[in-house]
Design a protein around this nucleic acid. Sequence first.
DNA 1: GTGAAAGCGCTAACAC
DNA 2: GTGTTAGCGCTTTCAC
Lengths: 335, 335
Amino acid sequence: MAGTIRDVAREAGVSQATAARALAGYGYVSPATRHRVRKAATSIGYRPNVVARSLVSGATKTIGVVVGDIENPFFAGAARGIADVLERDGYTLLLANSDEDLGRERRAVEALRARQVDGLAVVPSSGDDGAHLAAILREGRPVVLLDRPIAGLAVDAVLVDNRAGAERAVHHLASLGHRRIGLVGDSPGIVSTGERIDGYRTALAAAGAPVDDALVSLGGSTIDEGHRLARALLDRPDRPSALFTVNNFMTAGALGAIRELNLRIPEDVALVGFDDLDWTTLVDPPITVVAQPVAELGRAVAERLLERLRGDLGPPQELRLRTRLVVRGSCGGRA
Amino acid sequence: MAGTIRDVAREAGVSQATAARALAGYGYVSPATRHRVRKAATSIGYRPNVVARSLVSGATKTIGVVVGDIENPFFAGAARGIADVLERDGYTLLLANSDEDLGRERRAVEALRARQVDGLAVVPSSGDDGAHLAAILREGRPVVLLDRPIAGLAVDAVLVDNRAGAERAVHHLASLGHRRIGLVGDSPGIVSTGERIDGYRTALAAAGAPVDDALVSLGGSTIDEGHRLARALLDRPDRPSALFTVNNFMTAGALGAIRELNLRIPEDVALVGFDDLDWTTLVDPPITVVAQPVAELGRAVAERLLERLRGDLGPPQELRLRTRLVVRGSCGGRA
DNA sequence: GTGAAAGCGCTAACAC
DNA sequence: GTGTTAGCGCTTTCAC
């Protein structure tokens, strides 16, 4: 079984080059020969060795994907979107998790680079350190940022309108009469989070509500952290009347904290989250959220990568996809 | 920048072979030479080309992972577990989704095989067709099955005790007085699902409850399908008093259906699900579930793969990890 | 200790 | 049309 293209050639009684041509379908080969070669190939169960091909062609037909954590449904959804479009073109994904740590991200990028990926989709954990990616770009390999830009790095990026989304969410809360609105978030160093915090502040200011830093509770990127951070807010004597959570982990954590304290939503505390996951409609009341076009985000990244791979040398494009406020029952008012 | 090992050699004034030895750290190289080569390498920014190395060594330091759908938290968790242990040994994951379709799975496996992955972790979508995997094994590349076995295929597998888990869940329901217990599941062709259905039947029989096939609602592997399948059961005039859902998608779908019909849990209908996701504690009442050791499952698969990669030629091992019934409030009784 | 040389399996000129 | 030949960048004998 197995065997190389040489075995096929021998079996078919032609030269190795002819076998290669017949199999890869380039150059001239007589139909008869092609047929013979094809038969020989299947008869010995020939499988082209993509590694060898890559060494020659320089293309591996693989795309590296670096996300914070594939267990986060947001990243999983985006990865799925990427995979779906890339797969149609014969690409395979090399996946790595950064855990929102720049060091890990660098190592992941390095490992993928060494594996000669044709392109890279990355969710950068830092908004101002893109040296590792700049190096890749310099080699002529396309990189497309997903969800977050990097200041000073000229590179394609597919993002969402975080500021507008957060603003709309907080405005919704303010319009319902809330004045003390707390924010539960992970690191502001994560650009998307930073932008959402900005949007929160802007909305607060626009509503003439006090912007009290004591109501901004920031920490790590896990559900447990979200829980802890929400508790810090809810345990205050002057508890905020509403919470805005910057992503689905924070929403889950905050909801857990609210349950733990036996607070009612929205009577005791209203809640708006960023990210629309299925479970947000299953809890009672269903959560009002800022929905992101997750799959589309991934697909757009893949499309951009494909364009670059096909030779597009135009200036970097930044695409901002729109978010949507989905009003459900967690803020009171109409619901 | 960039450059090959030849450039390093020239820069260091040694032969290409010596440069290779110094860099890869095998064979004899004088400390002085090694130092010189290393310096030359960093000075020109040398990056080994893993593709070329792979062509020679035959090992790519990549592992293919085929799951049903990375958006399913169960698979995402397992993938994360795999990645965590494999990464320590310098491996990178090539990820593919099968969507529980054997054709897609075959194509994915083929694509990964062509890319010369050193090993494969797959969640097989069929329990009786393992020809594509047998072919890989014959080539001497290790394959470890995740979550589901394949009948007649001698291969390592890391599974969970689906039957016992389902049995315990349904027994729990029966012990609370339920006699008409419905099951919401995806395809019984998916072995883990099939085993859970078996466990359900066994528990029913043991409890002396009627095993009514009309109460077994089977279909596709999505939340929407779970919703539809649960509705089919709940819309019956002789509605079951309890539902057992075979995985997290079915649980989410069933819960949606229950909400839609404004039924109370557990008064109108009790619920036990398979898979313990964070949101199951956030809904009201929190859902009683059969918890699977998801991350451990992934880690065990990776460990087995690593053992095989290190030369273990022993007979195939089947590891069954234990599940745990987590009693919460969705079945009434003590809660 | 170091260098020369032979491939790994494939693509792609370039001849014939 | 088909065969010959030269690599892709690296590892690895085998001499010296």
